[in-house]
Design a protein around this nucleic acid. Structure first.
Lengths: 195, 195
DNA sequence: ATTATAAGCTAATTTCGATTAGCTGTCAAG
DNA sequence: CTTGACAGCTAATCGAAATTAGCTTATAAT
């Protein structure tokens, strides 16, 4: 995955993959049927790893109510932590980052990859956060606005800064600082004013 | 560019390029030195086209004050139009879309492409909008908040929905509707309350 | 009219990279 | 012990794709 995420499928040679694991190219074929088979194995592994995580975190958005209970009971300060935590995890988890780059490069070759990318990096986070914000509105913590839009406005800057960090790691500090300001300003804007 | 934006450099064969323009592969070499040379020609063309546009639109952010005068004098309704217009242009302009997809696919192969992508799709729009929002704050149209963050919160959802449309054109209507709601909610949130 | 040049073609050539063939050493189960 | 499966290796093979060679035709300038 390291190689595929840096160069893309077509620019990785099986000899490189073999070298990376300390064997010669033909020996790879004792373990995998073909180059494509290696790629598919990575994909399957990442998919099931994601599904495991998503099911324990209820990331599918169907049942974020329990989390909302938790968050509603504490200050909106927790929203800040959520944003920063999400960002930091996505940015620094080695596998998450490489997989994201791999999907970015390969998304237009394969509609399965495109859908996977959209699900993991758009639909799922958005529906989860939407449910969360929805609860926080009901509890009177946040202003009554369309929660889908709130989720988009919260998450899109996170996602965009993430892709910027992937592309230009040298500017990571700058982007991280901006992210922090975003999260703070977001909660300030949407916080319900006390009467 | 059509081919490169759909398949990526490595997956496009010179025979395909030739066929697309109605000649045989070897004839291409009467016009371009190599496959890479063809790619570079596209890149150069797109860069200078962008520079032309940017200089007439003052998109570099150095002098958005004139625009701010215009926008300040009219309602914040114009912000809505700006957001939707920006989105619609980026989404439907044939060259803009293909170039964006090409950069997306090739960004990790070449740091020049990475920087170009960041400049055209992040730094320039953000600095332009930041200058604009900054003026609108001074004029008392918008709340006094960090204009860099405002620009990020305005633009990131536009950018994210754009990449979603590129990836899954079948969901374009859904994403466009969400974009509209975003722009409306953004202006509502940041509009300065009358006392 | 003549000729030089441009732009095209077909048929090589060359290179590169995935995959297969076939051999060898190791090691665990009997 | 010995044998069979496994995992590795080197040396082919095979196919694909970029590029080059060398020829032909059209056309525009002299």
């Amino acid at each position: 995955m390291t190689l595929f995420s840096e160069k893309g499928y077509a620019n990785v040679f099986v000899a490189e993959i073999a070298e990376a694991v300390g064997i010669k190219a033909p020996s790879l074929y004792k373990h995998y049927k073909s180059k494509q088979d290696i790629f598919n194995a990575i994909l399957d592994e990442m998919k099931s790893s994601y599904d495991r995580q998503a099911s324990t975190l209820n990331l599918n958005g169907n049942n974020a109510s329990a989390d909302a209970e938790i968050y509603a009971s504490v200050s909106e300060n927790e929203i800040v932590k959520m944003g920063l935590g999400l960002f930091s995890y996505f940015l620094h988890d080695e596998y998450a980052q490489k997989f994201r780059k791999m999907l970015t490069i390969e998304q237009f070759n394969n509609s399965e990859l495109a859908q996977l990318f959209t699900k993991q990096y758009a639909d799922d986070p958005l529906s989860y956060q939407s449910a969360l914000f929805s609860m926080l509105c009901l509890k009177g913590v946040l202003k009554e606005e369309n929660p889908n839009v709130m989720a988009l406005q919260f998450y899109a800057p996170i996602f965009m800064l993430l892709t910027l960090c992937d592309r230009e790691p040298s500017r990571e500090a700058e982007f991280t600082a901006l992210l922090e300001q975003h999260v703070l300003q977001f909660t300030k804007l949407y916080r319900k004013e006390e009467k």
